[in-house]
Design a protein around this nucleic acid. Sequence first.
DNA 1: GATTACATGTAACATGTTACATGATTAC
DNA 2: GTAATCATGTAACATGTTACATGTAATC
Lengths: 208, 208
Amino acid sequence: MANRPSTPSRELTPTSFGILGLLATRPWSTYELAAQMRRNLHYLWPRAESNVYAELKRLAESGHARTRSEPVGRRPRTVYSITPKGRRALERWLAKPASAFRVESEALVKLLFSPFGSREDALSHLARLSEEFGEREAELTGIFGEYLADEDRFPDRVHINVVLYRLLWDITQTVSAWADWAAESLAEPASRAEALQVLEDALKQRRG
Amino acid sequence: MANRPSTPSRELTPTSFGILGLLATRPWSTYELAAQMRRNLHYLWPRAESNVYAELKRLAESGHARTRSEPVGRRPRTVYSITPKGRRALERWLAKPASAFRVESEALVKLLFSPFGSREDALSHLARLSEEFGEREAELTGIFGEYLADEDRFPDRVHINVVLYRLLWDITQTVSAWADWAAESLAEPASRAEALQVLEDALKQRRG
DNA sequence: GATTACATGTAACATGTTACATGATTAC
DNA sequence: GTAATCATGTAACATGTTACATGTAATC
């Protein structure tokens, strides 16, 4: 009973730190923050926007953030900013090892089981993937551009942002290219042999 | 009240279908299935193994799977297999559009906020990522090899498996290469200009 | 003046993870 | 015969999503 320390004021989660990190950059109103989560953080840590509201409230209660009323545009808004306590917590978190890199895709699972469905369905999942990543590429181009434009406002943030967006960009390219190849390969059973060749080559390359 | 249909027998979730898809290949004992989830499905749909037990029980209750007692090795085991109802449900699911491709990485989030922490921490997150993907590459090589060996047992499954593992392989390569480049780039502030160049090139290429 | 998008939430629910608990078997 | 690993779970908890609900400002 006395073994485990009761956790009175809930631990901060990775999602909390996602928000805390954004707050560390500058103060935001709730809505701006939600938009920022959707536009940027989402690529690395996808979460529903509605989380923002509850999370901010908790951060304020636990003293990691504070609120202030301030006009944004014409109307008064609640603006959140980070406290020294919040900054310290963020720094401690940054020093700790991270959990595993995670990819998850219903489309790929459906492809894995596509022998139990129709070939058309499989191909349409691939087409949809291709489309999805095309859109993503366009979004990233937009955000890329903003960071170039933003260079003067947050000079120290630009470097890491560029480096990270390059990874997202590279992954996007990788998946797009693969989706096209995969559609070709799966469309005709003949290219099955080709796929096996790809596999054998990969194994040989790795061992040789 | 009568508006929304009450959901008496819980819908199947993507995780249910992940298991159902494995069951469609052949019958498995619980433990084998859990191992298969960890070894294969995990790359596309990462979930804690402990889910398997509850999920199988639900699938059996709802008539999508059935159990049978059978010796695996020396001891009696409960072996699960898919029912016709389960197969039909799987087919319907395969025909429906999939949810979005999702990447999530605490390490990348920590890198994004690395200007608020120490440079050493940032570099060690990169090193850890590199290590993680090195291990993943080795695992994939092993699984790749198994699929080649398995060719006779499940001929129709081999093609799609090879195609999918190629994507995982490509992503692994992409992330590994990036991690090395990123570590170099972030280690010396001088290469910030270089990173910006990468960005400008990417934008130009895209527009031109 | 009506419609659309902005802005801020909440309640109910679904999903997922962690940390045990427990016995059997195998390897040494 | 003891330690490690196999095998099967469960309870408690943490997290996350969906589907509303509601008013305000901007636009036409």
